[in-house]
Simulated assay, not measured.
Amino acid sequence: MLQARDSESPLFMGRWETELNQSLSDSEWGTILFLTHHGTQAVRYHESSYKILACWYCTPLRLFQCVGTADPNCWRCGTELGSYLHIWWTCPLLQTYWKWIRDAIRDVTDITLDLKPQVFLLLLTGQPTTSFRKSVAFRLLLAARYLVPRHWRRKTVPSLREWVTQVDEIYRVEERIASRDDISLSSISPGSTGHSTLPRPLSATDWTWTSRGAEVEKMEDKRTLSWDFRT
């Protein structure tokens, strides 16, 4: 799957380009494949990246096309066809979630991502590939994408509390891997942002990520979530 693109490209490439209604260049596919293969050593998030790329998840429309008896509409909104892109991106209920993630990534890292599926799902962020792979923003995206299948076939969408918990898990898994490989993490500042090697651990209960200079309040499940950034 990760070989250079040739005259017989993998089926998932054509499927994604059809879903996006956009052709992607060889260079863009190279970035996607590099970040999928080399993005993280945390196995479950690595596996999630492969599944998203390969269109592994079975959507309502795909089930309808295969067996003919399933409801082809989205199980969340119930009003539009449940295509792969709809279930992962264009569903109005899920759009709120992706806007939360975009805003949080901007507030934490100063990186403003375009609210587009190729950015959030295929990792075509426009950032330098090598440094982005090591960044906090990359891990925030991995955690956000991982949570969507956790609500598969449900009317609910992931919460910010779940997302913070997953970010914390990625940090802890990569910390253990680094410790196993005798890589010191002592040089990573808890307040670092942007292109740091790893994000600092987050607590799912205290809801505070100390970084720098601003305070953002968001309402989620009738609860105020404060991201407190201090120098």
Rank of each mutant, 00 (worst) to 15 (best):
residue 33 L to T: 12
residue 14 G to Y: 07
residue 17 E to Q: 06
residue 199 P to V: 10
residue 150 R to K: 13
residue 175 E to N: 01
residue 91 C to F: 04
residue 30 G to H: 11
residue 206 D to I: 04
residue 143 A to M: 03
residue 160 L to E: 07
residue 126 G to A: 02
residue 76 R to C: 04
residue 17 E to I: 02
residue 34 F to V: 07
residue 186 S to P: 01
residue 108 V to C: 04
residue 163 W to Y: 11
residue 162 E to N: 12
residue 173 V to T: 15
residue 75 W to F: 10
residue 72 P to Q: 12
residue 168 D to I: 01
residue 14 G to N: 10
residue 158 P to E: 06
residue 222 K to R: 15
residue 223 R to A: 07
residue 97 Y to V: 05
residue 153 R to E: 09
residue 23 S to M: 02
residue 70 A to P: 02
residue 68 G to S: 08
residue 120 F to C: 05
residue 49 S to W: 00
residue 221 D to C: 14
residue 34 F to A: 12
residue 200 R to K: 11
residue 23 S to I: 04
residue 49 S to F: 04
residue 154 R to C: 03
residue 75 W to L: 01
residue 194 G to I: 01
residue 198 L to T: 07
residue 85 L to H: 15
residue 89 W to F: 08
residue 54 A to P: 10
residue 59 T to H: 10
residue 128 P to N: 05
residue 87 I to E: 07
residue 150 R to L: 06
residue 7 S to V: 14
residue 172 R to L: 14
residue 51 K to T: 02
residue 178 A to T: 02
residue 174 E to N: 11
residue 230 R to D: 06
residue 155 K to R: 11
residue 184 S to P: 00
residue 102 R to C: 02
residue 178 A to L: 00
residue 25 S to C: 04
residue 127 Q to P: 03
residue 38 H to M: 13
residue 62 R to A: 10
residue 95 Q to E: 02
residue 124 L to K: 03
residue 69 T to M: 08
residue 84 Y to I: 13
residue 228 D to E: 02
residue 197 T to E: 08
residue 176 R to A: 08
residue 20 L to C: 09
residue 71 D to C: 14
residue 113 L to H: 00
residue 130 T to G: 07
residue 50 Y to E: 09
residue 181 D to K: 07
residue 152 W to H: 07
residue 162 E to P: 09
residue 118 Q to L: 06
residue 115 L to M: 03
residue 185 L to E: 04
residue 94 L to I: 04
residue 120 F to V: 05
residue 13 M to Y: 15
residue 199 P to Q: 10
residue 37 H to L: 13
residue 139 R to P: 05
residue 200 R to V: 12
residue 50 Y to G: 08
residue 57 Y to M: 11
residue 184 S to A: 00
residue 67 V to L: 12
residue 37 H to T: 12
residue 165 T to N: 08
residue 56 W to P: 08
residue 61 L to V: 09
residue 144 A to N: 03
residue 182 D to R: 09
residue 227 W to A: 00
residue 21 N to V: 07
residue 125 T to S: 05
residue 175 E to C: 11
residue 169 E to H: 10
residue 9 S to I: 14
residue 91 C to T: 06
residue 95 Q to V: 02
residue 108 V to P: 01
residue 219 M to R: 14
residue 206 D to H: 05
residue 75 W to H: 10
residue 24 L to A: 03
residue 144 A to D: 00
